[in-house]
């Protein structure tokens, strides 16, 4: 983590990503402070001025001004701000007279940090799992199908005739879950199966990757992995010819 930072790499990363909206937002914020008391971090910290949303996105302007010449300590400061002092809820944007989208600016800051190899360990581990297994919990296809079958057996004891259709072509709804469900909370999947069964819905679960509807790559700006995850789901939906994709809560 202490390797030299290449200013050119930082600028090359930012420049093509700064579209018209980003540039406008960075240019026109008048620092009026109306976003301050909309932020729950600001309120919860006893009105700490450092928590003002407008202040949290200052890094982008500073980095552009310095032409990317920043050190690791600077990036670390930015890291602490964009991961621990903002959860991109967008409440500040609702109150900004210009409608400046702080969440998008913070997301860009996170993506910049990811490009420099800085992201929370948990997210990095999950990203590895997505790449290898197509889901954040590193569940193999065998385990996934096995879990579904087990859920079906267990639930059918309660609701006779209940089926959890796997890869049913032409079903109306393709259901997707949070990968934590098959891993830790299969009862959630069973509850959903009961609802689908009682409601008489024509539904199915895909056996191949695409069934995990979480997208943790998005949180640290790993667009490549985030895109892959979404594409998997679309691919499964098209293969099965479903009309709708439902996602779990």
């Amino acid at each position: 983590m202490n390797e030299e930072i290449n200013p050119k790499a930082i600028v090359d990363f930012l420049k093509p990503r700064l579209g018209a909206r980003f540039k406008t937002w960075l240019a026109i914020c008048t620092h009026c402070g109306l976003c301050a008391d909309t932020c729950h971090y600001y309120m919860a910290s006893g009105n700490d001025p450092k928590m003002i949303p407008s202040y949290k996105v200052r890094f982008l302007n500073e980095i552009l001004k310095r032409k990317g010449k920043v050190d690791r300590a600077y990036l670390q400061k930015m890291y602490d701000t964009v991961y621990y002092e903002c959860n991109m809820c967008r409440r500040c944007t609702l109150y900004c007279p210009f409608g400046i989208d702080m969440a998008l600016l913070v997301a860009l800051e996170r993506a910049l940090l990811f490009s420099q190899g800085m992201a929370p360990e948990g997210l990095l581990a999950a990203i590895e799992n997505y790449k290898q297994f197509g889901n954040q919990m590193a569940i193999t296809k065998e385990d996934w199908v096995d879990t579904i079958e087990w859920c079906e057996e267990e639930t059918a004891e309660e609701l006779v005739g209940l089926k959890i259709p796997i890869d049913k072509k032409g079903a109306k709804i393709m259901y997707t879950v949070n990968a934590r469900e098959p891993k830790f909370y299969p009862q959630d999947m069973m509850a959903a199966a009961k609802i689908f069964h009682v409601a008489g819905e024509d539904w199915t679960l895909p056996s191949e990757s695409g069934w995990d509807d979480t997208n943790l790559g998005m949180f640290c700006g790993d667009v490549k992995t985030a895109t892959m995850v979404v594409k998997n789901t679309f691919k499964r939906a098209e293969e099965l010819g479903v009309q709708q994709v439902a996602i779990t809560e």
């Binding site: 406008t24 937002w25 400046i100």
Partner: peptide, 20 residues
């Protein structure tokens, strides 16, 4: 300068308005 917000206000507001 950021006084340009007199015109860019409309672009910024529209951008967020469309999405929100």
């Amino acid at each position: 300068t950021k006084l340009s917000h007199y015109i860019l206000f409309f672009f910024s507001r529209a951008s967020s308005g469309i999405e929100f």
